[in-house]
């Protein structure tokens, strides 16, 4: 009688193990396997070692896509996080106004990704799109199919429109969770609204902002469907982000080996940067050296 009768409980965990194994571990192992071989057909493969990795790391087009991707994700964070906090700060705290603004803010999140691309194609068309036509009527030339800058602006606008609401919701929830006493104390101490934000609201938002930054970073780093629908990676390679390039190799050229090696590198980059963010944000504002 040295065991708990409740050892049975372990059996309950088995389904989760199976799901994780099938959905994550097995595919990952397959990809690792592919990345070390040259595959001509399902029966014809040659072991190539780390060749695909060396190729991938020295591929100038991949390096370009990586730079593009970093710039994109950086801009996304720089715009969405402050904008999200700002909107959350301006939203009413209670009453019907609070519910209404929450619903309005959440709307973009409810739309499927590919539909968003289509919406923006129409919205920004220089001939009939509300946005594109309006801009062109102002005398500015705007065409995301022709100008790389216009393509970037469009993808960026779409991304900000689509995902800032998530940051707003997180920040709003974080703000609501701050006890009233803090605001009372700040008033009594004579703090300005900037000081109240800087010393009460921002520090208290640290937790939710960590989550928001991680989510927005990972998600924007993986962006695929929207630019694919909107620009297809063009004009030229202007909006060919990492995932779009990856799909081009894997599906377009059917280079399974290099694509697999690329995937692994991609995965490791996200893991590494997310970990860095997490470490920095965990220690930010706690007085420890990061």
């Amino acid at each position: 009688m040295n065991k708990w009768n409740d050892n049975k409980a372990w059996f309950m965990v088995i389904p989760v193990f199976l799901v994780v194994a099938v959905s994550a571990i097995l595919p990952l192992m397959t990809v690792v396997n592919y990345s070390l071989q040259d595959i001509f057909s399902p029966t014809q493969r040659i072991f190539v070692g780390t060749e695909w990795y060396r190729d991938a790391l020295t591929d100038p087009r991949l390096q370009e896509a990586f730079g593009r991707q970093m710039l994109f994700s950086g801009l996304v964070l720089l715009i969405e996080i402050p904008l999200g906090i700002l909107i959350a700060l301006m939203m009413p705290k209670k009453g019907w106004g609070a519910s209404l603004s929450l619903v309005l803010v959440a709307l973009p999140l409810l739309i499927p990704w590919n539909v968003i691309g289509t919406i923006w194609i129409i919205f920004t068309r220089p001939d009939i799109g509300l946005f594109g036509a309006a801009i062109n009527h102002l005398g500015l030339v705007f065409d995301h199919t022709a100008s790389p800058l216009d393509a970037w602006i469009t993808v960026m606008l779409m991304e900000v429109w689509h995902w800032t609401p998530l940051v707003v919701l997180l920040a709003y929830a974080g703000l609501q969770a701050i006890p009233e006493a803090y605001f009372h104390a700040a008033k009594i101490d004579g703090a300005s609204s900037w000081a109240t934000f800087r010393y009460i609201q921002l520090p208290k938002l640290r937790g939710v902002l960590t989550i928001a930054i991680l989510l927005r970073f990972m998600d924007s780093f993986l962006i695929y469907a929207e630019p694919f629908v909107l620009t297809g990676g063009g004009p030229g390679n202007a909006t060919t982000f990492l995932s779009i390039y990856l799909v081009k190799i894997a599906v377009g050229q059917f280079d399974l080996g290099p694509a697999a090696a690329f995937s692994i590198i991609y995965f490791l980059i996200i893991l590494l940067i997310s970990w860095l963010f997490y470490q920095v944000l965990l220690k930010a504002g706690t007085g420890e050296k990061s």
Partner: peptide, 15 residues
């Protein structure tokens, strides 16, 4: 010109 001490300590965490 009043000061108040609340039920739960209110301090500025980052300072």
């Amino acid at each position: 010109n009043i000061a108040q001490v609340f039920q739960f300590p209110v301090i500025y965490d980052t300072m």
